[in-house]
Design a protein around this nucleic acid. Structure first.
Length: 837
DNA sequence: ATCTCCCGCCATATG
DNA sequence: CATATGGCGGGAGAT
């Protein structure tokens, strides 16, 4: 609530901050260096203030309030000075620092609200900005590019950008994190460090090159811009040039933070990784320097955003500049509604969702330009319909479903899938579902609860890979080569939204659509045995140098609770399997041709199927949480964060279970009765080209996001799956004991009789169409069995590489600043507290 | 000396 | 073709 206000105020001040006569637009003469001996006049006082404040500004951003107030003071002084002294006395020479990109960015950001409401859609006119901020255009580009990489702005046209604020942040970061994981950045970092380490003794040989290339070659030769559905680049044509290098670099940089466990990245490492991606081993000195320069540029902007802050890592080599992530924590890939779900009622406030309907669709279809989507109105209708459902349900007396746990879980999961589909997938699918499924009146309610269940399931999977996982010792249960290229034909890129399942994009490679019939990219929620959990404690600390970090600035180390909060949630589940996932990526070229190929394939496929759910985007975020800014606010650490731990970690006791106890949560495979649905060609939406389509992401997605399984389900169901085809179990689950013995069947809408502890084949007759599903579930509810010792798991999670007694990973310097040793798990205090419960 | 990173030339992309 | 973008790296201020 306060944020907006503050912002408004700030922007005002800042806008007027710059003295009109201050400096000519041209670079002021450098001389200055005024007489050192300055009398204690108001002016000198001011100067002091400026010099004193200036350097800290960036770092001080930590404490928003403080910062703002000081800034204002500063500015006030400034004005005062002006009035008093007028022009004769040239104001303090801008002194490089006052022209820093960071400061500039600060001003830039001050002009716009963090969470612009639908109404106040703010456009950014570069001309105005450059003028008002008194800067060269070039600089603005730097800022805007970085912001664009975070989807905080997007280009509309020449000189025109639109401001999104932080609305997209959760999605963006989540997406970036995912991509980062898929990119094996963790390993790459490891490798760089390792090489560095080995270089000490064997400075000459590039023996490790093989290692590098082995990892590097297979890796994505080129990763393009990560887009967000609904925020795509307007000029689709642009999508495939070397351009936006800064943008991409920025994204990658952020990815590094998001994937590394102590969220600290040194410039050196970052630069190397970012370079290494393009040119293999081009230890070109100049190139490196340039990269560093750029990283500084980016870092400055990110700092202004308070996403990172400068620190220093000290190791044998000495003190190296690095940055620490202090931005919003990326939430685990869980369904939305969790927040609501925690409360007794699961239905989100209607008042919020209704008014933003318009906005919703607006965002969905980026307005002008060729409409990439053509079902504007229908989608609105869909949204409306969904909201109506909500309304009904809300008003309706809630009658908690009574059923056995297993059955409940089963059913709720299923319903949840439906819900997800309807919510995210889009009109056609939604219609199909509404048409063919019988959905209980209180399906929402059930679903909400089920999502909680899902979360539990999902969390139960030990996807935690702390920090240094020696690449050479794969965990036994690790599904290596899980995604054969041939099977990766369906590229499913899902960008979930933590709070509200905004903007999901489904990306299907049409040319290979047929292969879908034989492959179900992970049709399970969160499989994976917990075997991994035990293998989590990582060692291999050898490669890691002891690193301590210290606050880059010498600000008072006021124990900022918010900071801790922000930094916490940390030891959350990191997809271990992700590191093993195939990294196949479609080329930009393919992407560019995507649409065309769509057409062609449509024809070639003939009647069999013409359905390319390539991108229905329903930014429900804006619909249901439009005004939830306060919660997702950057300072959200408080309330929201407090809740996250409950879901973000398997060790918080949500599903307390020991590794041995954790069995399987196997989502049923489906036997699908034929269902031929024909969709008119024009029902095929244009494919939103996602800059980055990871073919293997389907696995990742499904593993992390229940919704993806729903999508898979639909893909199959819609007709991509021939009659009677038995969807092959996902390789990931191979080791899972899928018992499919008894077959208790039941007919009647939604009335399965999955019984606790009993596994069986169930057939569901759903809806008037008589759609028949054969479930071959194997629910082993043991997964949900409550354990009495969550603590055990906890400990195994947080064992430090050096051993249980290697000391706390968090210590304090004499000056009160944090000291973080790399190679150990960074366990924020907050987290520990939570865990202690 | 090293860390930072501003400045603005100039190649490209856009319209 | 005129502009808008933005890659790039020299070199200077900050430490």
């Amino acid at each position: 609530v306060k944020t907006p206000l503050k912002q408004a105020a700030t922007s005002q001040v800042v806008l007027t901050e710059r003295q009109p006569d201050c400096q000519p637009l041209t670079t002021p003469p450098k001389p200055k260096e005024t007489s050192p001996a300055e009398p204690w006049t108001p002016t000198s006082n001011l100067k002091m203030l400026i010099t004193a404040a200036s350097p800290e500004i960036r770092s001080r951003e930590q404490r928003k309030q403080l910062s703002d107030s000081s800034t204002e003071v500063l500015q006030a002084k400034h004005c005062l000075q002006e009035h008093l002294l007028g022009d004769k006395y040239e104001k303090s020479q801008p002194s490089r620092k006052e022209k820093s990109l960071g400061l500039l960015c600060h001003k830039f950001l001050a002009r716009y609200p963090d969470y612009p409401s639908a109404a106040q859609k703010s456009y950014i006119c570069l001309d105005e900005v450059t003028e008002e901020l008194h800067v060269e255009r070039r600089r603005i580009y730097d800022i805007v590019n970085v912001l664009e990489s975070l989807h905080m702005v997007s280009r509309l046209a020449r000189n025109k950008y639109i401001w999104h604020g932080r609305h997209n942040l959760p999605q963006t970061l989540q997406a970036l994190k995912k991509v980062g994981e898929e990119n094996k950045y963790i390993q790459q970092i490891q490798m760089i460090k390792k090489r560095e380490y080995e270089h000490e003794f064997d400075p000459d040989s590039e023996k490790n090159e093989e290692t590098a290339s082995s990892l590097g070659s297979s890796e994505q030769s080129e990763m393009s811009f990560v887009e967000l559905p609904g925020v795509e680049f307007h000029a689709a044509s642009v999508n495939g040039r070397k351009y936006k290098s800064l943008r991409v670099m920025s994204q990658k940089f952020v990815m590094l933070f998001l994937v590394s466990t102590p969220q600290i990245v040194s410039l050196e490492v970052a630069a190397k990784i970012l370079i290494g991606e393009d040119q293999l081993e081009d230890l070109d000195k100049s190139k490196f320097k340039t990269k560093i320069r750029r990283l500084y540029d980016i870092a400055n902007v990110l700092s202004s955003l308070k996403f990172i802050k400068k620190v220093h890592v000290t190791e044998e080599r000495g003190r190296k500049p690095a940055f620490k992530w202090t931005g919003p924590e990326v939430l685990p890939n869980i369904q939305d509604t969790k927040l609501e779900a925690t409360s007794t009622t699961c239905s989100p406030p209607i008042s919020e969702s209704v008014p933003s309907k318009e906005h919703c669709s607006k965002n969905l279809f980026p307005s002008k330009g060729k409409q990439n989507f053509t079902r504007h109105s229908s989608l609105i209708k869909l949204v409306k319909s969904i909201e109506n459902d909500r309304r009904k349900i809300q008003s309706a007396p809630t009658s908690p479903v009574k059923m056995s746990t297993s059955r409940y879980l089963f059913l709720s999961l299923f319903l949840s899938q439906i819900q997800s589909c309807i919510k995210y997938v889009g009109l056609h699918w939604a219609i199909l579902f509404k048409q063919f499924f019988y959905i209980p009146e209180n399906w929402q309610e059930i679903t909400c609860q089920s999502e909680e269940m899902q979360m539990k399931c999902a969390l139960s999977s030990p996807e935690a890979l702390p920090e240094p996982e020696p690449p050479q010792q794969p965990t036994p249960s690790q599904p290596l080569g899980v995604c054969p290229a041939s099977h990766s034909s369906v590229s499913l890129v899902i960008l979930p939204h933590p709070h509200s399942g905004v903007s999901y994009a489904i990306y299907l490679h049409p040319s290979q659509a047929h292969t879908v019939t034989t492959y179900s990219p992970g049709f399970m929620l969160q499989p994976l045995p917990c075997a991994n959990v035990t293998g989590i404690k990582s060692n291999n600390s050898k490669v890691l140098n002891k690193i301590t970090t210290e606050e880059g600035d010498n600000q008072i180390a006021t124990a900022e609770p918010t900071k801790l909060l922000a930094a916490e949630e940390r030891p959350e589940m990191k997809s271990e399997t992700s590191s093993q996932r195939c990294l196949k990526r479609s080329q930009a070229l393919q992407e560019n041709n995507l649409i065309k190929r769509h057409r062609g394939d449509e024809e070639s496929l003939g009647t069999s199927l013409t359905f390319f759910p390539s991108g229905y985007l329903i930014p429900l975020t804006h619909c249901t949480h439009g005004t939830k800014a306060d919660c997702s606010n950057k300072e959200r650490a408080g309330m929201c964060s407090l809740q996250h731990p409950t879901y973000s970690s398997p060790i918080t006791g949500v599903i307390p279970m020991t590794a041995s106890e954790l069995k399987t949560v196997n989502i049923p495979a489906f036997h699908i009765t034929p269902l031929n649905i024909m969709l008119s060609p024009n029902s095929v939406p244009a494919a939103p080209v996602l800059g980055n389509s990871c073919l293997s992401s389907s696995n990742a997605s499904s593993a992390q996001n229940p919704s993806s399984s729903a999508l898979n389900f639909m893909l199959q169901h819609i007709g991509l799956i021939p009659a009677g085809v038995q969807v092959p179990a996902n390789p990931v689950l191979q080791h899972v004991p899928v018992s499919s013995q008894a077959e208790s069947t039941s007919h009647s809408s939604g009335n399965t009789n999955v019984q606790e502890g009993k596994v069986g084949t169930n057939i569901l007759h759903l809806g008037p169409a008589g759609l028949k599903f054969t479930f071959i579930p194997s629910f082993q509810l043991s997964a949900l069995k409550e354990t009495q010792e969550p603590q055990a798991v906890t400990e195994s999670f947080f064992r430090t590489p050096g051993g249980p007694d290697s000391g706390s990973s968090l210590s304090t310097n004499s000056d009160g600043t944090e000291r973080i040793s790399q190679g150990t798990l960074y366990i924020p205090q907050r987290k520990l507290e939570v865990l202690e419960d």
